[in-house]
């Protein structure tokens, strides 16, 4: 073998590191919950389903409404209408067709029922949703 100078950079370790980083980020996005982060109520008797990519609607402790991660503000007629538009837009371009017509509703542990009720009624009366998927956390007791 000739003892010539190698000119090219060895990219293998670089590629390895990049791949690992890529995978870490992929995992992060998978593990991170969708929607705005709230303390979910715990429950024992729940059904587990694969994520159908249905739009996530969140009500936080102060009664603010979120669609995915967008804050719309306090639950009012106007923000509910805004929610309707965003959810309908999400259904129109579904990532998973099974998520169309479904809503994943996250509400904070401590938020009063009166803050969530208008959302439920709006979903039902204006958007014709017959069953809402309520987000819960697993009860480990």
């Amino acid at each position: 073998m000739l003892d010539h100078v190698r000119n090219d950079i060895n990219v293998t370790p670089l590629v390895d590191v990049m791949l690992v980083l890529l995978i870490i980020f992929m995992l992060m996005t998978l593990i991170m919950g969708r929607g705005h982060d709230v303390r979910l109520p715990s429950a024992k008797h729940f059904s587990e389903e694969k994520d159908k990519m249905q739009p996530v609607v969140t009500v936080d402790i102060d009664g603010n409404l979120f669609v995915e991660k967008n804050k719309l503000g306090p639950v009012t007629e106007a923000t509910l209408k805004e929610m309707n538009q965003q959810v309908t837009a999400a259904w129109a371009a579904p990532k998973n067709p099974e998520g169309v017509g479904r809503i994943y509703l996250k509400a904070d542990n401590g938020v009063e029922y009166s803050k969530v009720y208008p959302v439920l009624v709006y979903l039902n009366q204006q958007m014709g949703i017959g069953a809402v998927d309520l987000a819960i956390s697993k009860d480990n007791r």
Binding site: K50, Q125, G128, D133, L134, S137
Partner: peptide, 12 residues
Amino acid sequence: IMMKMETLEVPR
């Protein structure tokens, strides 16, 4: 990813 949920029926 599994989403944990309870389904609440809202009869129209």
